[in-house]
């Protein structure tokens, strides 16, 4: 942990070497990603609801997914850009250090510019919550917190899975985008608005539904079953599988080389 904190500090120091570039990058990202939200607002300008979900309900799920994704883009950038580590040979250098590989990969890159996206997600989240007029109780607050955490975990798991793939083909390939960007874009909406095949895919293959659909129904009071509070924890299983896959890939790497 101290190692990771020290890396955070060093990445920040590196960043300060290019101050203006950081500020411009931060602001432009901040503005660009607001277009995402504008699209939703424009959509709801025409329609009151989509399959029974209102504007602020959609913004809530949207913000939760963006939050988890942006969090990983900032703090787990090394895993996100793992193919680069393999291609330029930096991964070999990590193998020469007496530390856990995954920790070192995490330390290898921090993308502070994407903090803009994280900040944005938090702002939208707050706007959505304020406007939803829900009667909050302790269960719902716990559910919301678990949703945010599981959103972070699921993207970490997906990034890890994609990183494992790099061990085999060296390149991250576009398959990853089906999972991350494509999946994310769909999962930003309450999954119930899609047809049932998507619900099945997002329940059993990439468990986005456990992050922002089943618990959402509980928060909105549409389902009462208290077991849904803990439904986001399903993603831990997913993380475990991803982690094992990564380990397996690494073993493969040392025995085949690049």
């Amino acid at each position: 942990m101290t190692l990771y904190l020290q890396s955070l500090k060093m990445h920040f120091k590196s960043l300060l070497e290019y101050k203006s570039s950081f500020i411009i990058g931060f602001l432009s990202q901040f503005l660009v990603f607001f277009t995402y939200y504008f699209i939703i607002i424009a959509l709801f300008d025409k329609f009151d609801n989509v399959k029974g979900f209102t504007l602020y309900e959609v913004l809530l799920t949207f913000a939760i997914i963006q939050f988890g994704y942006a969090f990983n883009e900032v703090f787990a950038r090394g895993i996100d850009k793992f193919d680069r580590l393999i291609i330029n040979g930096s991964f070999d250098l990590l193998l020469l250090r007496p530390q856990k590989i995954l920790l070192q990969v995490l330390c290898s890159e921090i993308n502070y510019i994407k903090l803009s996206r994280l900040l944005q997600a938090i702002i939208v989240l707050i706007i959505a919550i304020v406007n939803l007029n829900l009667d909050w109780n302790i269960y719902k607050i716990i559910t919301l917190i678990l949703m945010l955490i599981s959103s972070i975990i699921i993207f970490l798991a997906i990034f890890l899975l994609m990183a494992s793939y790099c061990f085999l083909t060296v390149q991250g390939l576009e398959v990853r985008n089906v999972f991350t960007d494509g999946g994310k874009n769909l999962a930003q909406y309450p999954i119930g608005i899609f047809n049932k095949y998507f619900v099945i895919i997002f329940t059993f293959i990439i468990p986005y539904a456990f992050v922002n659909y089943y618990p959402l129904l509980f928060i909105l009071g549409r389902l009462e079953n208290k077991i849904l509070i803990f439904s986001p924890l399903v993603v831990l299983l997913y993380l475990f599988i991803s982690f094992k896959t990564f380990k397996w890939g690494m073993k493969k790497y040392t025995s085949t080389g690049s």
Partner: peptide, 14 residues
């Protein structure tokens, strides 16, 4: 982007 001394400090922890 950093002085070598910073890298040394990190290695110290590694």
């Amino acid at each position: 982007d950093l002085p070598a001394l910073d890298s040394f400090d990190l290695l110290k922890n590694i």
